[in-house]
Design a protein around this nucleic acid. Structure first.
Lengths: 205, 205, 205, 205
DNA sequence: GATGAATGAGTATTCATTCAT
DNA sequence: TATGAATGAATACTCATTCAT
């Protein structure tokens, strides 16, 4: 299953694809665009990759791996639940901060119809499972307080920081994705988490 | 600036565009697709609209109007803050439930680069302003507890219910967009709102 | 099942395709070649036809129809068997003489693998059936003297006149496809037919 | 002019080219296809051969040689004319049976325009000359009973057995290229030869 | 002796858009 | 009020061939 390390040229192409797909969406980017951005000829893209779709798949693969790695240690940390949840949110927010393009690319693919849903689902599943395990002690299996709802609510609160940043910035008068903006957002999300925990396990407040 | 009411033919075209753009994204739909779905000739689309972009603009315009109308009365309602917030969330959720395509279309456009950002921003702005007014009494102007953060968090929690539903359904074993799913989601969001209010105005709990 | 008469432009394109496919084979001709030869823009070819393959299918359809029409009256003629066979050979030869490209196009497709075999078979089948009926009185159902063998032998003798003409001409010192050449070939084929009939029904000689 | 004996690697490539060209035609086969089938790298094909065209030339050369060798002894055999003709037909049929691909490859090239005509002619010429010599005693030099007509008729009857086999098989309910099919075809062709000889030299019947 | 890397030229096809009628 | 015809520009992809190593 392990893939041989990509050659420099291929890495360059992949990096360009990553950036462009993130900026303009899969459909908004042509193979020529990717080649130009990478400083290679168009045919070279087809030499190193099987096609445009393969290119996207590799970009996603890399994201998935990085994403999971970024969250693993946070999920596996020990300590009181609240601190662990804060840690996960920080890790999530931090990963997204370093991978601006990710959130938007994925949202774009979701909006493109079912073709990529299976792909995205496979990436999301472990995160959901982790959340469910982590919250098992305070949240029931089913109903409106089930872990899955908190997963959806909190991951949405993290992700949308990035997907909506470009349209919020002018309204906020500051960029939610800037260092300051993210620090503030982080505090907000901690507040939200604590508020939810207060209600779920009142004694612990 | 007012435009004569659209003829039946045009309305048919617009409706098809709305559905298709929502299902497959702007780029994933051709003018021919829209024409076919509407049962008209391709050239008719250009007769009634200025082009594909115009078509999208009209679709968005309609959404904006409907969206705002759906939320206005909820925002203007009187009564205790919590009840009003619940009302807004119910209205938001209800509107989205009836306009499946909206959330995905907008997400798709966000991912397509800055071209449509201004457009989307104009729609979002009033919602943000309303939220800020509504929360003025409990939330400060700036910082991590500012109204705008709650707006982002809660609107994300609503919207993502719809954008992620297709990939969550298999994992949940049930469809978050079904009647049952939405009722449960509604309860969850009320819980979240209450939890946040508890922390913001502890006495009121 | 009837097809509306093709517009002038489409007819022009089809005619060019017919000629070029016959001259250089399906793979040897690009859509651009066809468009140029027809004096239209490349995109016009796609406006009138669904694609290159469709173009070939239409060309073949026309041939099939013309081919069958050319032979029908000959097959349905009354009179002694030998005369009727001569008539069929004359009709076959005449049709091919007017449709130089046909034989070569079909041979080229046969050599391209199974993709077109079904297509070609559907055209050949009626000819084989007719031959079997015509020879029913003198040829057995099975074995080396079955009608199908005579069909294969004689149709080969006709068709190869055209497929091999370009390489035979220099060796013969004259063109087998010229008027004189064809007249001579016709006499030869009559001789062959008579020889075969002599053996099949000796009394009739 | 003599070329050093091809290395094993080259032979492998040539064999693959032969098979593939025969199956899908020259244009339908890419250098990569040949390399893959031979289990070598694509660049190796260009190392051992000058290019795709050279590859085809070598394949044809081999066929020519094999073809001529297969027929030489039959042509040089002694004995009565009819027996010698039967022998040639048997040899021709036998060679084709072992070289399925040959007939179709050559037909495909004929259909590809004049580029390969000269090539093919050089191969055909000796066969025609031999036939003319063999039939010199019974057939005139010119006119519809000239040897060259019998050559065209009989070689067509042999070759078409193979080129049309794939489309005839379903109609015949049996494969003309199977052992049984070929045995039957052989008998048929002997019958045809005898019929022709009967007419050419009636006394000898 | 052999090949990985690279590419120029070409291929079929799509599509938003224009326009004469 | 429509629309059939037409097209320029772009798109993803293929492939024979070259060449430095």
């Amino acid at each position: 299953m392990e893939r041989a390390p990509l050659k420099e040229r291929a890495a360059q192409i992949l990096a360009s694809a990553e950036t462009l797909f993130g900026e303009r969406g899969y459909d908004g980017v042509s193979v020529r665009d990717v080649a130009d951005a990478a400083g290679v000829k168009k045919a070279a893209v087809f030499y190193y990759f099987e096609g445009k779709e393969d290119l996207l798949e590799r970009v996603l693969e890399r994201y998935y791996t990085a994403h999971r790695e970024a969250l693993t240690s946070a999920f596996e940390a020990k300590g009181p639940l609240r601190a662990r949840l804060h840690g996960v949110i920080d890790a999530y927010l931090g990963f997204m901060a370093e991978n601006h393009a990710y959130a938007r690319l994925v949202q774009g693919l979701m909006a493109q119809g079912p073709a990529w849903h299976g792909h995205l689902q496979r990436n999301l599943e472990p995160l959901l499972r982790w959340t469910e395990e982590a919250l098992a002690e305070v949240a029931p299996d089913r109903g409106p307080l089930a872990a899955r709802h908190f997963f959806l609510t909190l991951s949405g609160a993290v992700i949308n920081t990035f997907t909506y940043a470009p349209v919020l910035a002018p309204m906020w008068g500051s960029d939610p994705m800037s260092a300051d903006g993210l620090a503030e957002r982080r505090e907000h999300l901690h507040f939200v988490t604590d508020a939810l925990m207060d209600r779920l396990e009142p004694r612990d407040g």
